[in-house]
């Protein structure tokens, strides 16, 4: 379970996250929605400590992070073991083959035996439909393939939560679909996920919970069904603007 209380993040005078209090239930998929610049990526990146809000408490399982105080490297390390990040730009390691990308963390961070890590990596590649790409370099992959490798790379670390930051925003609709299908199977296996996305139909399909953020404020925090049936004019306008209904 992830719980955030009174999380506030500023960039200079600009308040990006304003007193956020929410939870991300385990074994469920939480989707964060909101217009560009609303702070949703910053919120997600805070969960991996890639951003450090100035104030607030962050609890993940038995770990407690107080953002008002300096965060020790042990805490950072422990939080990052529990969470994995999937980025909009994939961020695969270009100097390593796909297989090496997958075993890099397990072997060098988790100190797993190489043979075990390789066997698991092969299984994961099969799982995302890329068994034949083990020896390819990232530059030889399509965007959809690269993102599926990135998802497999995050799964290889057995994180409690996978955090996905607009995982399909850089992809065309066909490639986007490949990635979403993979995410759907992971969702069905009850992997805890937090996804920032602009794809409303996908959000509708997978979200157990929706968090709608605008200008750093939580505008909606609740069930997906409740969100899509909301009478709130701002939410209705947002949903309408995401589907082409002119």
């Amino acid at each position: 379970m992830i719980e955030l209380t009174h999380l506030t993040k500023r960039f200079g005078d600009n308040v990006v996250l304003n007193d956020i209090c929410t939870t991300f239930p385990e074994q469920e998929t939480t989707v964060i929605l909101g217009p560009s610049g609303s702070g949703k990526s910053t919120l997600l990146r805070s969960l991996n400590l890639l951003e450090h809000p100035e104030e607030g408490q962050y609890q993940i399982d038995d770990l407690q992070v107080n953002f008002a105080e300096p965060i020790s490297s042990q805490t950072t390390f422990a939080v990052r073991q529990k969470t994995e990040m999937v980025f909009q730009g994939f961020n695969l390691f270009p100097h390593m083959t796909v297989l090496k990308n997958l075993i890099e963390g397990p072997v060098h961070v988790l100190k797993k035996p190489k043979a075990d890590a390789m066997a698991e990596a092969s299984t994961l590649l099969k799982h995302v439909g890329l068994a034949d790409k083990a020896d390819a370099y990232p530059s030889q992959l399509s965007g959809g393939q690269a993102q599926r490798v990135a998802i497999a790379r995050s799964l290889a670390m057995h994180p409690h939560y996978i955090l996905l930051d607009e995982p399909t925003s850089a992809l065309d609709p066909e490639l986007e679909l490949e990635v979403l299908k993979v995410l759907l199977t992971i969702h069905e296996q009850q992997q805890s996920m937090v996804i920032v996305t602009h794809n409303m139909s996908f959000a509708k399909r997978v979200a157990n919970k929706i968090l709608f953020i605008e200008n750093g404020d939580v505008q909606y925090d609740g069930s997906a069904a409740g969100f899509f049936a909301s009478e709130n004019p701002r939410i209705k306008r947002f949903i309408d603007s995401m589907s082409f209904t002119i």
Partner: peptide, 12 residues
């Protein structure tokens, strides 16, 4: 992004 990806998998 390379720093971020590496930090995210728990590297120091």
């Amino acid at each position: 992004g390379q720093w971020e990806a590496a930090y995210a998998i728990g590297m120091r």
